[in-house]
Nucleic acid binder design. Structure first.
Lengths: 191, 191, 191, 191
DNA sequence: GATGAATGAGGGTTCATTCAT
DNA sequence: CATGAATGAACCCTCATTCAT
């Protein structure tokens, strides 16, 4: 039967359904039919809102990046937290984010460059968002290393990879982060 | 027209053609037809040598991993090099390798686990290969940090990502490596 | 060019086209492409209605069995006919049916059990349908043999085979049926 | 390695291998490669002896028919047996034959008419072989029905079908045969 | 006689995309 | 806005057959 909804809501529904399926099965293994079916909508309507699979993929990625950014911003701007607490939350955010959305890392027949797209989008915004955070820590004498932003990124990406490869011990992570950022031993308490 | 070749050579040709195309366009976007065409061969012959696309993909991955391993081994066992020189070469190897074969990072519809496969294969061997290298450096007092293997991996993966995101300045890399491994400032000279 | 039809009609068209081609050339030698072409439709549409060749084959078989059953039922329930007339019509039905659909007797690479499927489907229903018919004739003293249902089946299958092998003389058939069912000589008049 | 054999033996080996595989998996699902592999021979050699799959199929059928005939002949000419014993053996031969070679009944992409081919070949020879057998029984007054050959065929084919459909009780078969051939009750003892 | 690499046509299937309604 | 029937191109794979050696 025909169900009419507010266009914006419909579009959002389709977008989120696509996101869910992409995460679950990967982009390449998610067909437009799958998305339409799961969203209780016809294929035609999906194409009404997104003129191609590519466009839909990009919209999903944009949504994902926007979400992540928002969370990052909330952490950074959370004034009541200490540097170490914020650092912790940032690391956690990236772990969770990368883990949850790992399937994006796939090649889609439609959009082979998706991996770079996501990575760059996230990185770029991460740099912007953490700039002040890092600047402040540097001024306060907590961070003393050169290129702290790059170092943070290396940590994030590098540790995420470690995590994905099966290393899960929080103590090890704490030590690695402390060492890499030249923080005092024991300053970081990962649970 | 019909061209007969030594089976081993033919198989190798097909394998290398596949590798090239996979790198260029990704696994998902490379069809068996593409490979056959590029190798001046019929599809049937590709299947004569590799009974499925999956098998071909696996063969390519195996070849790639084997190659990388070999190069790594050569570096580590190169007795005339200093620790710093070896470290340099290892980093370079991973940069180049990862860059060249970036498209492997895709999951194919046929073989969704390829990303992990490669990553794990490489990581595992990297750990094994660099174990002695690191142990020696530690004993010589050059490396003083905890979890040096993990740190090295973080560096490799993290820096590779930085590189892919557009950071190319060797001085920055040198500084980052020195800092992260707690090496003396200026000990590393990247050209 | 694009021609849209009522889905039920379209599906039926495809089904009947498939049936015709299966009968003409056999299931194994009839490709989905052949069916699509003959039905003036694209392969994609065939798959839109039947998700695999197997499913299409099964649908065709089901249709065929249903048809045959219906005709059988009409004969058996035709109250105005004598036992001999009904017997005649039943025999004729099976001759025609088996002849027309002889090619079904093949096993398809896709559905190796099709032969048994058809045969059993037909047999089972034949037994059910003719049960009352036989019971009544037995009670009336027309049929005096043991295992009349089995005998009827032997007759049907056996005579069908004879027919297919080239024996077409109705008098011979009449005699054979009379003898086998132990009916009075001359009771059956095949035209 | 290259193994040279007497051509006739080689051809026979291939033929028998093909027969076995056809019976096991059906003609359609048996590829020339399968045959070659199973016969420890290359595809080329199979084609050296049989210029096409069709030809090979026909050769297999011919072999099968010849075999069956031979066995039939042995039964019929076995002078020490009574009519009933011979009848029994004939029925058994057909049951076994049909069961063992059921897979021939499939469509081959190469030879769609195989079913008829076999059936006709067997029937024709059966008629010839049993002619004397029947004639003698008729003269001796054992067989009194009209068209005894046809009746025998109906029995063979019809009972074989019954058997395939799951009826296995020897007593039922005995009764059916007795009835159909108008033999005295209890004259046939199937074990 | 014998090999097995090589061909080429076709088979079943999937899916992004279009369009008449 | 919404439907879903229809398209068409591509994809992976199989196999009878050929032919240079």
């Amino acid at each position: 039967m025909r169900v009419t909804k507010d266009p914006q809501i419909r579009k959002q529904e389709i977008l989120e359904t696509a996101m869910t399926l992409f995460e679950q099965n990967g982009i390449g293994k998610t067909s437009m039919s799958d998305i339409a079916k799961e969203a209780n909508v016809t294929k035609g309507l999906v194409y009404y809102y997104f003129s191609s699979k590519d466009e839909l993929v990009e919209a999903v990625v944009a949504l994902f990046v926007r979400d992540t950014n928002q969370r990052l911003q909330q952490i950074v701007e959370g004034s009541s937290l200490t540097f170490y607490e914020k650092l912790l939350q940032i690391m956690t955010l990236y772990f969770v984010t990368i883990q949850e959305h790992l399937k994006f890392v796939e090649a889609s027949p439609a959009n082979a460059g998706i991996y770079e797209l996501i990575k760059n989008s996230l990185s770029e915004s991460a740099l912007v968002q953490t700039k002040d955070f890092i600047k402040q820590a540097t001024e306060e004498g907590i961070l003393t290393i050169d290129y702290p932003e790059y170092t943070l990124k290396i940590l994030i990406n590098g540790i995420a990879d470690l995590y994905l490869e099966g290393v899960h011990n929080p103590k090890i992570f704490a030590t690695l982060i402390e060492q890499t950022l030249a923080l005092p031993k024991g300053s970081l308490q990962l649970k």
